[in-house]
Amino acid sequence: MMSRLAAAASRPAEISFEVDGRILSAPQGEPLATALAAAGLLQLRHSPRNGAPRGAFCFMGVCQECAIHVDGVLRQACMTPVADGMVVELRGVP
């Protein structure tokens, strides 16, 4: 059976990565946006003018709502596989 987002327990935790100082784990190869959502982190950034919460929307590389800093560089979380030791920051794009 597939796991639900926000029910991370059922997924194998093969690698670990860091999000704003928190250590999370995820299966090897899982897209970062999915790994974050599974850890309950749906909110990835704030919108530029209104400061409203935003999260992954299209999961196919189009909407750019999942653009976050991965090892210091802006990347689309839905197109980026999680990797061991990855450092993720949700400091956002102003």
């Binding site: 597939m2 796991s3 639900r4 987002l5 899982e30 959502a37 599974a38 935003r54 992954a56 999961f59």
Partner: peptide, 25 residues
């Protein structure tokens, strides 16, 4: 529609087919 937790319908197919997870509870 901009709230986290609202996703595209096609996006859901990607989650199911490629990321192998459910969109929510």
């Amino acid at each position: 529609w901009t709230l986290p937790g609202v996703i595209g319908l096609a996006a859901a197919t990607v989650l199911l087919k490629s990321h192998l997870v459910l969109p929510g509870e």
